[in-house]
């Protein structure tokens, strides 16, 4: 088994390549993904390798991109459309929630939508408006959609493959802050990482910290900083819908304390969902309120204030301490 040392975005590309090879029904399209290879190089070289029947550019029209994908998917293809930045998904929102999410129900299972909608998401890259959103909660709220957020190169390729092979629509949000932050060994051949399964990144007994995407890195850093003082368990949820509740409650029952870290704003964020469910499932084990370390309830700030908005290790450490000392 040979492997390559890839960054996260290279793993996206590799995953797409393997799936394009693995299944002729897979097509990749979006703005600048074809000849240009994608603004983040996520589709670099795929156009040359697979031709414009499999990998092609679209007009600047998100609604059309997603609508076309839904149509293709309903007729048996496996489209993997890209929305260039998750902040541009809104023009396609109606297509996503009214049709992609509903078609299976509406047709009583005759038609499904095996579409994987890829979009880079999240802040920290000094970009202008609309380029830093983290709105996964909107999509988890829509039954009929799956929402997946990888955090390491190995998982990215595997989760992407699993998403593409999944018979239902998957919103695949790629944490672009860490697109090139580090490399990892990624096998060359195709493989999948199961959707709906969280991953315990770090075991501990004092407190459970639930997080995903770009926030896994500062969370692990915070946990390392607290080594010797507090024994922190870090769980990377990976799939936000369906959420791996078993993993969450298993961890919580072990520690009795939880912190949720997400860069999305606090109100209505998934931290609330996790806190409520923990209360339902494991109230008796609870020693402290579930702490949410999140972005603030403001529009995502520009450049100069970005670093204050996003949770970083120090803020996460404070949240953990608060929870443990309650």
């Amino acid at each position: 088994m040979s492997s390559q040392n890839l960054t996260l975005v290279q793993a996206v590309r590799d995953g797409l390549k393997c799936e394009l090879e693995h299944d002729d029904d897979v097509v990749v399209f979006g703005e600048d993904v074809g000849k240009n290879g994608g603004v983040f190089r996520a589709t670099q070289g795929l156009y040359d390798e697979f031709g414009e029947d499999r990998v092609f550019d679209t007009p600047l029209a998100e609604s059309g991109i997603v609508g076309t994908a839904i149509g293709m998917a309903a007729y048996g293809m496996k489209p993997v459309p890209e929305i260039q930045f998750s902040g541009f998904m809104y023009p396609a929102f109606d297509q996503i929630v009214s049709h992609a999410a509903r078609l299976r129900t509406r047709s009583r299972g005759r038609f499904t939508v095996p579409m994987t909608l890829r979009a880079p998401y999240g802040g920290g890259i000094r970009a202008p408006e609309h380029h830093s959103e983290s709105k996964e909660a909107i999509y988890t709220h829509e039954a009929g959609l799956k929402v997946v957020v990888p955090s390491t190169p190995y998982e990215t390729k595997g989760l992407l493959a699993a998403a593409i092979r999944d018979p239902d629509p998957v919103v695949f949000l790629e944490p672009k802050l860490i697109y090139r932050a580090f490399r990892e060994d990624v096998p060359e051949e195709p493989y999948t990482v199961e959707l709906g399964e969280a991953n315990v990144r770090r075991e501990g007994t004092d407190v459970s910290v639930f997080t995903w995407g770009a926030m896994t890195r500062p969370t692990l850093e915070a946990a390392d900083n607290l080594e010797g003082e507090i024994d922190v368990e870090v769980v990377d949820l990976r799939t936000l819908s369906p959420m791996d509740w078993d993993a969450i409650t298993d961890s919580f029952k072990k520690t009795g304390r939880a912190v949720v870290v997400h860069e999305a704003p606090k109100t209505g964020g998934l931290g609330a969902e996790i806190a409520a469910t923990i209360g339902e499932e494991a109230l008796l084990y609870q020693e402290a309120p579930v702490k949410r370390v999140t972005g603030f309830d403001t529009p995502f700030p520009l450049y100069a204030l970005e670093d204050y908005y996003m949770p970083e290790a120090a803020r996460i450490e404070d949240g953990i301490r608060e929870t443990v000392e309650y």
């Binding site: 960054t7 600048d32 970009a127 672009k176 697109y179 090139r180 932050a181 490399r183």
Partner: peptide
Amino acid sequence: MVVGDISTGT
């Protein structure tokens, strides 16, 4: 890159 500055880690 079109927009934004994504750091490369090494």
